[in-house]
Measured scan of single mutants.
Amino acid sequence: LRQRHVACLARSERGLGFSIAGGKGSTPYRAGDAGIFVSRIAEGGAAHRAGTLQVGDRVLSINGVDVTEARHDHAVSLLTAASPTIALLLEREAGGP
């Protein structure tokens, strides 16, 4: 079961505080899956403080732009754009009992 949710992050002077992996033109985060995933969350960064991202979340869109088939460098450029806030649509595998 997959759950979707939106995370809104305000960029700090240190950026957004998370890294992505995967996407076309880069090493897959999961074998056989060209999706883009949250690969790291920086301690004390914007994403960590927001508490809405988890490592392993699939990134579906960035500020309304679909990145499900995107190249890695395109997703990075969307994240590093000048916008002071970033809205992410994420998909998470629902774990637990």
Rank of each mutant, 00 (worst) to 15 (best):
E43W: 07
D33M: 10
H5C: 10
E13C: 07
G15A: 06
L53T: 02
A70S: 13
V6R: 09
A10C: 10
H48A: 13
A75Q: 00
E43T: 12
A10T: 13
K24M: 12
G45W: 04
S61V: 07
A82Y: 11
V59E: 00
G95S: 11
A42D: 15
P97D: 12
H74D: 15
C8G: 03
E43A: 09
A46S: 12
S83E: 15
I20H: 00
V67S: 00
V38I: 13
E13A: 11
R71F: 11
E91C: 03
V59W: 01
A7H: 05
H5F: 15
S12H: 14
L78Q: 04
F18Y: 02
H5R: 12
R58N: 01
T80R: 13
A82Q: 14
L9I: 15
V55G: 02
V55N: 03
A21W: 04
A75M: 02
P28E: 13
A70E: 07
V55S: 03
G95N: 11
D57A: 01
K24N: 09
G17R: 02
T68K: 07
A34E: 13
A34L: 11
A94D: 14
V76L: 13
G23I: 02
G17W: 04
A50E: 15
I20Y: 01
N63M: 04
I41F: 03
H5E: 11
G44V: 06
H74A: 12
V55Y: 00
T52Q: 15
G35S: 08
S26C: 13
P84R: 08
R14L: 09
G64K: 06
G64P: 00
G25L: 04
A7C: 11
A31T: 14
E69V: 07
L53R: 02
S61T: 14
F37L: 01
L89E: 15
I20P: 00
G44I: 04
Q54P: 01
T68W: 00
L53D: 01
R49S: 14
D33W: 08
I62P: 01
H48Q: 15
G95W: 09
L16G: 04
E93P: 12
R4H: 07
S26W: 04
P97H: 12
A21D: 06
A75E: 04
T80Q: 13
A7Y: 07
A70L: 06
T68I: 05
H74K: 11
A34W: 15
E43M: 10
S39Q: 07
A70M: 07
R4C: 06
E91K: 01
R58Q: 06
G56F: 00
T80W: 08
I36D: 03
A42S: 15
A50D: 15
A47L: 05
N63D: 09
A31C: 13
V76P: 01
G32H: 12
S12I: 07
D57P: 00
L89V: 15
R58C: 04
L90E: 01
V38A: 01
R92F: 04
V67C: 08
S77W: 09
L79P: 01
V55E: 09
R4L: 07
I62M: 05
T52N: 14
R71P: 08
A87T: 15
I20L: 08
T68L: 04
T68S: 12
A42Y: 13
A31H: 11
D57L: 01
V65W: 06
L89T: 14
I36Y: 02
R71T: 15
A81E: 12
P28G: 08
G25M: 05
A47S: 06
E91S: 06
G64N: 12
H5N: 06
G23C: 00
P84W: 03
P28D: 08
S39M: 05
L89N: 09
I86V: 15
H74G: 05
P28K: 09
F18H: 01
A81F: 09
G95F: 13
S61R: 14
R58I: 00
G64M: 05
E69T: 12
H48T: 11
G25R: 04
T85V: 09
G51Y: 02
A94R: 14
T85E: 13
A81H: 10
L88W: 01
P84G: 15
K24A: 10
L79F: 05
G17V: 01
A82R: 12
R14G: 13
E43L: 11
S26F: 06
G96F: 11
R14V: 10
S12R: 09
G17H: 02
H48V: 15
E43P: 12
R58G: 02
G56H: 00
T52R: 07
F18P: 02
A46H: 07
G15L: 04
S39L: 03
R49E: 11
H72G: 07
R14I: 09
G25E: 10
D33Q: 13
D73G: 09
G35H: 05
V76G: 04
G56D: 05
A10D: 10
V55H: 00
G96A: 13
L79V: 06
G22D: 03
G51V: 02
I20T: 03
E69S: 12
E93H: 10
H74T: 14
R14W: 10
L89R: 07
P97W: 05
